[in-house]
Design a protein around this nucleic acid. Sequence first.
RNA 1: GCGGGAGUCGCCCAGCUUGGUCAACGGCGUAAGACUGAGGCUCUUAUCCCUUAGGGGUUCGUGGGUUCAAAUCCCACCUCCCGCACCA
Length: 995
Amino acid sequence: MKKMAENSAEKTSNVELDWAKVGEKWRKKWSEGRIFESETQPHTKKYFLTVAYPYPNSPQHVGHGRTYTLADVHARYKRMKGYNVLFPMGFHYTGTPIVSMSQRIKTNDLELIETFEQIYKIPDEVISSFKEPKKIANFFHEEIKQGMNEMGYSIDWRREFTTIDTAYSKFISWQFRNLRKKGLIVQGSHPVGWCPQDQNPVSQHDTIGDIEPELIEYVLVKFKFEEQYIIPTATLRPETIFGVTNLWINPNIKYVIALVNNEKWIITKDAAKKLEFLNLNVSIISEIHGSDLIGKSVFDQLRKRRIPIFPASFVDPNNGTGIVMSVPAHSPYDYQALIDLRKDSVTLTKYDMTVNIVPITVIHTDTFPSIGLSPAEFIVTSYSITNQNDPKLEEATNKLYSDEFHNGVLLPEIDIIGNLSVLKARDTIREKIINQGIGTTMYELKNAVKCRCGTSCVVKLLTNQWFINYGDENWKKLAYELIKNMEILPEEIRQEFANVIDWLKERACARKSGLGTKLPWDNEWIIESLADSVIYMAYYTLSNYIRNNIDLQNSKDKVSADNLSDSFFDYVLLGKNDRDLVAKDSKISVQLLDKIRNEFLYFYPVDSRHSGRDLVPNHLAFFIFNHAAIFTKDKWPKQIVVNGSVLMEGKKMSKSFGNIIPLRHAIEEYGADPIRLTMLASAEILQDSDFSFDLVKGIRSKLFEIYRAICTHKSVFTIIHNSTECNELEDLWISSRIQHIILETTSAIEKFRIREALHNILYLMDNDLQWYHKRKLAKNKSIRNIYLKEFFETRIKLLSPFAPFFCEEVWEIMGNHSFISIDQWPEADDSKIRLKSEDNERLIQDIILDIQKITKVTKIVPKRIMIYTSSTIKCILYKKLLDRIQSQSTANFGLFMKEFVNDSEVKDFVKHDPDLVKKMINDILSESLEVRQRRMKIDSFNELIPLQDAISLLISEIGNDQLEVSILCEDNSNKYDPKQKSKFARPYKPAIYIE
RNA sequence: GCGGGAGUCGCCCAGCUUGGUCAACGGCGUAAGACUGAGGCUCUUAUCCCUUAGGGGUUCGUGGGUUCAAAUCCCACCUCCCGCACCA
């Protein structure tokens, strides 16, 4: 009678779930309970995991959430596994973008202001405060922190810091002095894209239209002009130098004569300026008009001969030196220009010239004829080009250049570089002419790039640039050793790490602007953001003991930032120096110093570092290198977990698509848990996951469904286990299933197969519950029992790292008064795993499916169903087959037959019905390895038992009250079997007769 | 150019390491039905083709090969994506 009443309650129950309220409620409780704060607990095993801290120049959007959520799930899982988990967070203020953003606010940049107003919904008065860089950082810092809390991240906030805190700067100074002592910091020069106005390097973020400045290196070939002058021409193809026939000069522009490193160069004014930025000593002496040079000749120093100067309007004063060397055999432009000039009698008369040029072929390629026409002539002809303004010239040039680059070989008769491939010849001749002083190099921007301030960018050769020398061979060896002993998840990405370590060379580590720590030995430089973020995980272990400028109260038991010195860090992080001296130096007690040192020793090394895939070639690689250099091997990180990025509704997130959704907006609208699950469930870890709000809604309603089920079955959770519980087939089965789910889900999480884990919890568990429900219902029994309780408790615990708010709430509804967040992770109970149970229920499911198939095809409305289980001999044969397949890992039918015709036990049967043997082999093969092993272990499986047990279910599933079901063994000689169906019975596949 | 990936049944995405569990998980979408005052949510069923006895046929970028057996292993080809530095 109890059952009836409860069943009706299910329908009418009207449950509600307010995601926002639930979020707020548990955030408060967690914070009051201080359950995510962790300290040294010598007798508990620790787990220290970190994620790359955020750069606070914008709010977090949905795409940022994936890595942090994954790390949080990891932290929560380990916590439930009994570890003392440390999951801290900091904020990376270092770098230039925030500074340049504030510049843009100062200059009233509308694009940026609109982004702030419309996408991020920031009030105007706040935006105007952004003229000060730190205000920007502070604002987004708080914004991001709020978002992290709203997402439910289980962070120990007491250890929070920013990278421009005094104490942090002291730590970074220590790091750098340390690296320098080890000889890993070097100085050198380096070309960069540069804004002459801002006096700063420019990168993609700093340019109008976000264009990445691309650098190219020209070779300048110096031609002598009238003894005292040099005319340098810029080329990307110095290997064609032996094919030069003339120079091109633009007659319509002015050139200058400039003293360049004590030589008198004739170049354009633009070129003179560019050379200055490349640190050449340039002073302009006078001007000279292009037309004044036409018709004269220069001396080719390499080949010791004179070549003429011809006019060409295509010569761009902005490009190179504004003077071009002409190689008509290999440049379609040069060739066509010569043709055109030859026809232009006006010009020829004007300068009193004749064009008497024969193109000189220097490179051979199979694509072009080796005799007769030069390659350029050939291609110009085959493209039917008629003049130098023909757009097809560009195409022809690309084709020729590309062919010659890949397949070209210098002709044997060419001096110095004969018979060399184009690539080799290029390097060889470059070296040669530079060494002889008849050539040099010049960097230039490949594309016209403008800084956000509006100024055209140039290439600047930075001198005295500081580098971290990741090219150091011994250091590389240590880095290899580190990753060799580190777990990398997923394993597929390991190769990529090895490659990166291999490629890395010197890397600039300081800039002249931006926020950050000054280079300790050279105050003009500020340590760059990818250099001050590589060992800070160690800093978390002591940051809560440092009294910072932001935290003046609560200063007991803390060390003042001002008193931090290298000796302090040497002692705490490396165990060097005398304890008493260091304590005295740092003006703290020995006890406090010990405490700090012990906390470092307790928590370090990092057990797991989480990051997005994009950080593999930079941050994560540097993280590895720097740990290898600074820390002893026992403090090297143990694991890296890398995840893919997030697409929004199938598209890359970008401002131009307008699909950047701030995380906090999404939480407000859908609740944190559905968003967390969506990020994690839509793809396995290394794939890009496709975030969509349809999916969020789907998952949210899935959670709600669970919630509703738990609310309606609330009374179940007060059941106390007692011996009167029923132990029917389906009870043993569901209990066994629960253990399996625990095992499988736990192992999936350990391997970071998060999608799979969620799949189990959210969907597969539902199937089990449904089946259990069906079975009980058919027997007219209630599912409200101890098994249902166990089922839901397990499910909620498994789900709790993923959907923490939801699970806390449900946990409470279940009548618990503790936090599920710090409860125990479910352990599978081996004694509850029952192999036969799984086969029982499988058999019942299969028989229903088979009957349904038959009725569907035959369109019979069954009145009577006969089910025949296999004869004993078939079961014996099945065992034998299973045994052979498992032990020999072959399924060759012929082989088995040969063996069985000599086996007295089964030979008669096998000879009589070989076809059935074949079918049985296929039956076995179509089972999973797991099932096969299970069946090997079961010694006698009586199919009659589960089938009898399920008669009520068969009747309700087939849906006919008048139905009569009989179950008989094939061996039974008195059975009713009018169509002789029983002989088709196979083990785990009974024969069926329907009428 | 160098390096790293990816192509699966409308879409997204599992499976490939260790060949048979695979007509191939799951979600979304679509269709029908149940529930509802009507919707939404939820539930059931279907979703490559054929089939009056639980079956058969053709599929996993393309073309070959190995094998009793290939989405999975080998070879070739086609297409697409990402990173290459002073930038977080």
